[in-house]
Design a protein around this nucleic acid. Sequence first.
DNA 1: GAAAGCTGAGAAACCGTTTTACCTAGGGTG
DNA 2: CACCCTAGGTAAAACGGTTTCTCAGCTTTC
Lengths: 382, 382
Amino acid sequence: MAKAERIRIYDVARVAGVSVATASKALNDTGRMTEATRTRVKQTAAALGFRPNAMARALTRQRSFTIGLLTNDTYGRFTLPVMAGINEALVDQGVSVFLCGIEDDAALGKIHVDAMLDKQVDGIIATGKRIDRRLPVDLSNLPVPVVYAFTEGPADAVTLVSDDRQGAREATEHLLAHGRRRLVHVTGPDSFASVQNRAEAFRASAGQDAMVLHGAWSEAWGHEAVAKLWAQPNRPDGIFCGNDQIARGVVDALRERGVDVPAEVSVVGFDNWEIVSAATRPPLTTIDMNLKELGREAGRLILDLAEGSRSSRASARCHASSCCANPAEATASRTAPKKRCFRRFRECCHRHWRAHGSGGKRRLERGNPTRHRTRPRPQGRI
Amino acid sequence: MAKAERIRIYDVARVAGVSVATASKALNDTGRMTEATRTRVKQTAAALGFRPNAMARALTRQRSFTIGLLTNDTYGRFTLPVMAGINEALVDQGVSVFLCGIEDDAALGKIHVDAMLDKQVDGIIATGKRIDRRLPVDLSNLPVPVVYAFTEGPADAVTLVSDDRQGAREATEHLLAHGRRRLVHVTGPDSFASVQNRAEAFRASAGQDAMVLHGAWSEAWGHEAVAKLWAQPNRPDGIFCGNDQIARGVVDALRERGVDVPAEVSVVGFDNWEIVSAATRPPLTTIDMNLKELGREAGRLILDLAEGSRSSRASARCHASSCCANPAEATASRTAPKKRCFRRFRECCHRHWRAHGSGGKRRLERGNPTRHRTRPRPQGRI
DNA sequence: GAAAGCTGAGAAACCGTTTTACCTAGGGTG
DNA sequence: CACCCTAGGTAAAACGGTTTCTCAGCTTTC
């Protein structure tokens, strides 16, 4: 089973008894030839186990079938599902992904972006751990398209974000549907855009005077919030938490006080972070942002842009991935199945992407290639 | 700031007034020329912002400065730190990483491996979520070196694993150092190699008759174990847990019983998974497997192999990343700083890597390139 | 029956580097 | 002075493909 030397298209051509040009065209379903020739070449290639050298191909095609994924979030609570989705969308297009973790280091970011550009990526997806923060790199005026997913980009950029309002609405409606009326929203710091959006949507559904408590993104804050809430007269019967850690703190604190969840009080989390939501007793009802689908969309989008930027002018549409509720409401059983459901797919923005010099043009434009060629490579005669 | 056409080495050569060959040699610090020429070319390149096209370079050099990272573990508890380390080791060598998440899908694995090979990766690192399981792909007889990190590979492969015995020893000694004498080990299923190794090391330090309880990797099991232990007469005063989730369950259960941690009973976890260990009240003492360093080592290793396989026969050494204890023992303060310390770097194995056909040879061997060339590319005169 | 059109295939140019082989001028040697 | 050596540099081949251009041969068409 010793790995033989790699088969080249020359070998295929020789064995099939055709020229290299014909072989290439046969394999790529381009050019004109008898169907017999085409199939013969294809069969030969298959028999020989020919796999084209992606580098060589990229060199002529000006397309590497490679994209770069830039992320902020090395310990990937949010990035990981996004990545999984991206990969899923790209793998069967034959596109590979360079993963680059730049902490919050601008210098490191530049190094990675340069390396990606050197390696001729077809596009770059930027993603992060926070929807309203930017990566410490300048991705404008790059010769390749850029998509921002779950991170903030320039105003005219293609951006994909989760739909916080929709998620908050679903959570609130879930509580209302269970007959809860005294609702409270216990969430993270007010400085997060997500927090503001969710709080707004919560108030829109629960009533403008519904209480919103801001604190840290921690279990401890969940405990503290319950202490505050139970110290006052008008105790809630439904609590919508800003993330699963807060929710877990809330549930634990309620149990410690002897409050029955979910019989007396319903709790809904946000994120559907299995590790937290599944360990909570009872298992948490929580909103899933469906980040994988967001990633999938980012992948499709960057591909469209990469192709568009080389054939015709790109006019990008931009979707938002929706949020979705996990229906496994506070079951007694610890092993309750927790299926994720995809609810809605809402269009949120119609920003456009400025196509930088299309690839088709590029070939023609680049300072008279003929003249250029003749100097360094005088061929033959003269 | 419109991005101009990419500068090629032709441009540099022209501006510097030398031939392309000279330019290339000047920039790569090879060949012979006056120092003046070399610096002139370099300055010109810098002034023009020349960045060589990695594809073209890879084509001639037979080296893409790209490696593939294959992983099992999409939701990356273990893979993520490993990845971070790999990236860290490779970024300043100009090497980029293709990340490929193959669930447990053999077909998907093959697709990714093939894609990586097509893209001429210089090597592949395989990693997973479990040290004693294999990825569902066959990585033997590949034309590039392979390193297995935190996943099992063939017997003769280069493999990097965390040192479970050392970790368990440190945990146990930590408990003994705090004067605890009635030690118990609450850990995961016996089927895990890690579990067996840790249990063995635990017994070696704590005494051969010390109790080891096996269960699930969950908080629930931690609760259950405490129930069992407190139902019997000889209650422990030191508990070493197999992971942080179990430890958290144990600590919570103890608190619910009114047992003071750490005054009456000391608890040590394993993994140093911030999200669990930091949320535990009080913050957990836990063993850090130092996976980032393991990743770093994997990166260095694959690079050595890639270079070795092309200059001289590779004879790889294989290190194990050590474990390391987090010294932040059960502090009252929730905000106790949790620094990680790197303790030891122990050599564990000396397996060798069979170098498959070296790159140097390849060039010469490949069936008379001259004859080959003359057929499809008759140049000029004749 | 000759001009025009179409078809299948191959030669050569090209992508942007690196590397090899060769050349020339100058200097030292016998 | 013939000879060899070396330093500095260049032309061209090579890497492994894709794409454009050309061309011979066969049909149509008038």
